[in-house]
Amino acid sequence: MKASITTWKDEVNWLGRRFLRQWDLQIMVIPAIVLIVIFAYIPMWGVLMAFQDYNPAKGFLGSKWVGLKHFRMFFEAPEFWLIMRNTVVISLLKLLVAFPAPIVLALMLNEVRHAAFKRIVQTISYLPHFISWVIVSGFVISMLSVDNGSLNMLLQTTGLMKEPVNWLSIPEYFWTILIATGTWKEIGFGAIVYLAAIAGVDPHMYESAAIDGAGRLRQLFSITLPSITPVIVIFLILSVSQILNAGFEEILLLTNQGMNVALRPVSEIIDTYVYRVGIENYRYSYATAAGFFKGIVSVGLLVIANWIARRLGSSSLW
């Protein structure tokens, strides 16, 4: 008994001495861990205020615990289903359009024989990735402006329309504008990974296919696409886990921080709702509950997507 205590103490002492001896390594780690604990872990713990009636004056410890009250309020709120619909529909549209777009671009670029042309198009295509959403939304607003926006000018000079349309004020067009903008911004950057995957395909496969008389389209569908499927699956899993992130920044910016009330029935998603209710209306606990609900569903979706991918026998995240 006594012996084991000494060894345990020795162990700690030994570990402590070793820890002190590598102070020069630990000193590189500790500032980072402290920052992570403060800015990532304290907020995680702060999520518990979703179960409180958080009162800033009383602080976290002094506020009253109310169980699932805020979750119940959120689920019963008249806007709940609208918000869920918008979040899911916008994400699904993104998955349907914005997700395959870079794959199509990569496949098209791969067919281009002129190296210079290919490089120029590629360079142009990832320019928008580096531009802030503030500027991109400014472009969209300018292009779609009712007051001499380029789109209205084009439609009017070609005679397709007589009167200019205020595109950004009509709810029916909002999803199209949002998805088109997102695709426009990320198509080129997203294609980089797929192009690299295509570059890794064994050229012999194309040669033998050509000898067997396969045309380029046939080669594309029978060789290139199957070869990059593992990469596509991984990115698909990642996108599925992002399904509740319908695009907070861009929606906030394209709807004038939610001030464009006409668009709210189609534009309000969980994130913008949390922002509006929490930051603008100071309903901290309620907004945290809504955000927490989203977080749980997201992690659940990631696990399910990964499980399905593993079941189908293709690549998975873990």
Partner: peptide, 16 residues
């Protein structure tokens, strides 16, 4: 931290 986050409101209150 790559899978979980406190979200907007707790981070905001922390900064405050």
């Amino acid at each position: 931290t790559m899978y979980f986050s406190g979200g907007l409101i707790p981070s905001y209150l922390l900064i405050k």
